[in-house]
Simulated scan of single mutants.
Amino acid sequence: MQDNYTVRTMRADEVPLAVQWAAQEGWNPGLDDAGLFFKADPQGFLVGLLDGEPIATISAVKYGKTFGFVGFYIVQSEYRGKGYGLRLWDAAMQALAGRVVGLDGVVAQQGNYRKSGFEPAYRNVRYEGRCGGVAPEHSGLVDISGQSLESAVAYDRQFFPDDRAQFLRAWLSQPRAKAFGILAEGRLAGYGVIRQCRSGYKIGPLFADNDDYAEVLFQALRSGYSAEVPLYLDVPEVNSQAVSLAQGHDMSVVFETARMYAGQVPDIPVDRIFGVTSFELG
């Protein structure tokens, strides 16, 4: 590895490069992901530069005081196997030292992540289907805005290992997206977001107290778009009801990762996670 290789924190205007590379890898990021992800942790994106030119990226986003999540670990193909990625990885792990760290590892890299102390907790499976349909008539279905947005932030906390309110407020208010909640006895009992991606639309997160609420939210989120438009949903395979939801709408598996953790596996209700927020940020 050459000595003229440096690692530093990315600026906001550089994060779109990581998203562009993710798209080239086939990960299908959202059209507005770069700015939204940066708001999660402005110090959480690193770039590896060779002679001043970016050749590798990684995100090491901090949540609260106890949790971190790694994503966007990409080395341009001609520079792989030369130590550049490892140096960037070490910088990310140093930035997250002392925290439980999660990631979604593609199949080819899971062995390498194990060598760094990560152990698989369960598989996340990406399903592809189609948008369309009509929003169901349900008295508890609400658009998330204003006060409802803060209710969603509070509801979300039980599904994530540490505080991500700053990111979530941006995520729920993003352009080219819809966010719905469902009320039961005056309280939020589920919510979901759908956003426009490089290809079609992706639902995430989709959290609900039971599969009936998840079904209502799923139908509401995908309604209003053409039935020809692709729809994606990332499902924890250990949640059999989430798998049934996807399969019940003729969705097919197109991709998989392993949710892996270094440190104690967080105690979150995976049985009520019907759609993962993001493979890049958790």
Rank of each mutant, 00 (worst) to 15 (best):
D163G: 03
S145V: 15
G117P: 05
Q166W: 10
R99L: 06
I182H: 02
Y191I: 06
Y127T: 07
R176W: 07
G132H: 05
G181K: 03
R114T: 12
G26Y: 12
P161L: 04
P175E: 01
P161I: 04
L221Y: 10
E228F: 11
Y191T: 10
A214G: 00
R8W: 08
C131L: 11
W21P: 08
V134D: 10
Y201G: 03
D3F: 03
Q241T: 11
Q43D: 14
G98H: 13
A40H: 09
M260G: 00
L46G: 05
T257A: 07
V270N: 09
G263V: 07
Y73P: 03
L217N: 05
E53F: 06
Q219V: 10
D267G: 01
V153G: 08
V101F: 00
A246G: 07
A184Q: 14
G111P: 07
P54N: 10
E25L: 12
L233M: 09
V19G: 06
S199Y: 12
V19H: 01
Q147G: 11
L221N: 06
E185T: 13
R8S: 01
G117V: 11
T9N: 12
A154Y: 00
F45G: 00
N239E: 06
Y84T: 06
G146C: 11
P29Y: 00
H249F: 14
I268H: 11
L17V: 08
G64P: 09
Y213P: 07
Y261R: 08
E119D: 15
E215F: 09
